[in-house]
Amino acid sequence: MTSSSTPGLTRFNTLADGEATPALHEVCASAAWGETVLAGRPYATEEALLSASDAAMAELTAEDLAEAMAGHPPIGRPKPGDPTSSREQRGMAGASEELKTEMLELNLAYQERFGHVFLICATGATGEQMRDAVKSRTGNSPEQEQEIVRTELGKINRIRLTRLVRETLAEEAPVQDS
């Protein structure tokens, strides 16, 4: 998908701003990030869209990062009825009650230390990997943690943007089932 536009990307590029803005907000709750990505349309390739997302993420202020993080529920507690957070946190779904309790305590300690939820790109991570990450990151300085959060948000945004463009493509494809 690096040499030409796909039907899903074309649809994203041609959405009215009023339709694209809420779709981008589902990817990342930062208004500044969404405005920057929206302003870069049309994108020639999926990779160009992802690169624009990365560039927009790099420019976010501390306040913009806080706004982006506010759109993410704590690990182990996906938003009820939100398939995105449930899918991304699948690694905690089968965790033992002991691990879930430990994660809750670790999340609270992290939040007490840094003033925001523990954020990690949880897609594909096990509950144990997430637990180990929060344990190791709690010792970081606030400045170190802010940059780690920026990187993790960038990873999440890439996954969500890819899904957005590819799901858009799937929605447009004719149904072949009988």
Rank of each mutant, 00 (worst) to 15 (best):
P42H: 12
A44F: 05
A44K: 07
T45D: 07
A48H: 09
A48N: 07
A48W: 01
L49C: 07
S51K: 11
S51M: 04
A52T: 13
A52W: 00
A52K: 01
A52E: 07
S53W: 05
S53H: 02
A56D: 06
A56S: 01
A56Q: 06
A58I: 06
A58H: 05
A58E: 15
E59G: 11
E59K: 15
T61R: 09
T61Q: 08
A62R: 13
E63D: 14
D64C: 00
D64F: 08
L65H: 01
L65S: 03
L65D: 07
L65I: 14
L65F: 00
A66T: 12
A66L: 06
A66C: 06
A66Q: 10
M69S: 06
H72E: 05
H72A: 09
P73S: 09
P74R: 10
P74L: 01
I75N: 02
G76C: 04
G76V: 02
R77T: 14
P78K: 04
K79G: 03
G81R: 03
G81K: 01
G81M: 01
P83R: 13
P83A: 14
T84C: 05
T84L: 11
S85K: 08
S85G: 07
S86C: 13
S86F: 08
E88C: 05
E88G: 00
Q89V: 00
R90C: 06
G91C: 08
M92P: 03
M92A: 03
A93L: 14
A93N: 13
G94T: 00
A95P: 04
A95Y: 00
S96R: 03
E98T: 15
L99N: 09
L99F: 05
K100E: 12
M103S: 05
L104N: 04
L104I: 08
E105V: 12
E105Q: 14
L106E: 10
L106K: 00
L106S: 05
N107C: 13
N107I: 05
N107W: 06
L108N: 13
L108H: 12
A109H: 04
Y110W: 07
Y110M: 09
Q111I: 06
F114L: 09
H116N: 12
H116M: 13
V117N: 15
V117G: 14
V117K: 00
F118L: 08
F118T: 00
F118R: 08
L119E: 02
L119F: 12
I120M: 10
I120S: 03
I120G: 07
I120W: 10
C121Y: 07
C121T: 06
T123C: 07
T123L: 15
G124H: 01
G124F: 06
G124W: 06
A125N: 07
A125T: 02
A125G: 01
T126A: 02
T126F: 04
